[in-house]
């Protein structure tokens, strides 16, 4: 599904964030990234999403070198991913239903199908009764759940979930775990990220620990 080969990623403030880093992730796997803030979890997720180009190395998604593709082709591949990142953006002035249906709109699905799928996704995160509201009317937690609904509405083959569920009520965490678990069981590859010591979202996940300031030199074994 995803293969990172000899990845180097350098920032001025982190000159050796990733150094000769390799990782292979098969279809239907669940990988949990653990590390302190600044350890590169979000960078790794963004690289996998085609949003952050590695300094060098190759990153293939379903056999296609993500960063050798043109911007539009890379964007089309991203349509098959569900991204749940912190600091979510939403369409202002639009309902929750419109927001969740946006990826489906980009994919060009017919309106009826878009609305059905979006409604279904809202129901799965417990927001089905509020589909006519606008995102700014929601609490922080509900906005995050809205982002999850948007990520799953397009039936992704890869779910990238950054650390945002920290501090969620146990009930909501359980809901998210069940939701990601159901996608995982359906064959979807899941990559989650969290802080050390935090509860794992799934015991089925294999864990990759990222540490700083030591650069990440090689990938983990399964």
């Amino acid at each position: 599904m995803i293969e990172l080969k000899e990845i180097f990623k350098r920032y001025p403030e982190h000159p050796n964030l990733f150094e000769n880093f390799s990782l292979t992730l098969g279809a239907g796997e669940w990988l949990h990234l653990v590390g302190p803030p600044g350890s590169g979890k979000s960078t790794l997720l963004r690289m996998m999403a085609g949003l952050e180009k590695p300094t060098s190395g190759t990153l293939t998604f379903n056999g296609q070198d993500l960063y050798r593709l043109g911007t539009s082709a890379r964007s089309r591949l991203r349509q098959r991913m569900g991204l749940v990142f912190p600091d979510p953006g939403f369409l202002e002035g639009h309902s929750l239903l419109d927001n969740v249906a946006l990826p489906l709109e980009i994919q060009g699905l017919p309106r009826a199908e878009r609305l059905t799928r979006a409604q279904n996704a809202l129901q799965r995160v417990g927001l089905d009764g509020q589909s006519a509201l606008q995102a700014r009317q929601l609490s922080q937690n509900a906005r995050q759940r809205l982002m999850v609904a948007r990520a799953i509405s397009g039936y992704p083959v890869l779910l990238l979930v950054d650390d945002f569920y920290h501090g969620w009520p146990q009930e909501q965490r359980q809901l998210l775990e069940n939701l990601l678990g159901s996608f995982h069981q359906g064959g979807v590859t899941v990559v989650t990220a969290g802080l050390p010591g935090g509860n794992l979202l799934s015991p089925k996940a294999r864990t990759l620990t990222l540490n700083t300031p030591e650069p990440h030199r090689i990938g983990i074994d399964p």
Binding site: T71, S72, S75, G89, L91, I106
Partner: peptide, 16 residues
């Protein structure tokens, strides 16, 4: 700008 950045995140092509 925010909406465009969101569209980029969701895989909208440049043409879109």
């Amino acid at each position: 700008r925010e909406a465009l950045s969101l569209l980029n995140l969701l895989g909208a092509s440049l043409c879109y």
